[in-house]
């Protein structure tokens, strides 16, 4: 006799769980926990590293990536910084 309402309750719980699993129509932003961030290693490839930073910062519009070649070594390099946070004259000039 008591089973019926009990089963009903269980099915309600199931329903609630199903609702949780349902995909939301909006894409979830990529989210990194502190732990995941702490375990991110560098890759030897420059492109790979730059892509990683870009991805973690969520393609931030204020992230500036300046690719260039170190003259005396003929090695590719990149400078990454947030627009407005650094001193541009120091960054560009300063011989």
């Amino acid at each position: 006799m008591w089973k019926k309402p009990f089963m009903k309750l269980l099915s309600l719980v199931d329903l609630a769980r199903k609702g949780q699993k349902e995909e939301s129509p909006y894409p979830r932003p990529v989210y990194f926990t502190q732990k995941e961030l702490a375990n991110l290693p560098f890759s030897p490839s420059l492109d790979e590293n730059v892509e990683r930073v870009k991805k973690i910062l969520g393609e931030a519009p204020d992230l500036v990536v300046r690719r260039f070649i170190i003259g005396s070594l003929d090695v590719e390099a990149a400078v990454l910084f947030l627009e407005g946070m650094v001193d541009k004259s120091l960054l560009n000039e300063k011989t």
Partner: peptide
């Protein structure tokens, strides 16, 4: 990333498994 967010410019070089953070804060 911490350094970039604090206003440093970070230098990455092809073939290196590390980067250099240059503190040139200008906010």
């Amino acid at each position: 990333l911490d350094q970039i967010l604090q206003g440093a410019a970070c230098l990455l070089i092809q073939g290196e498994r590390q980067g250099a953070a240059l503190k040139i804060v200008g906010y």
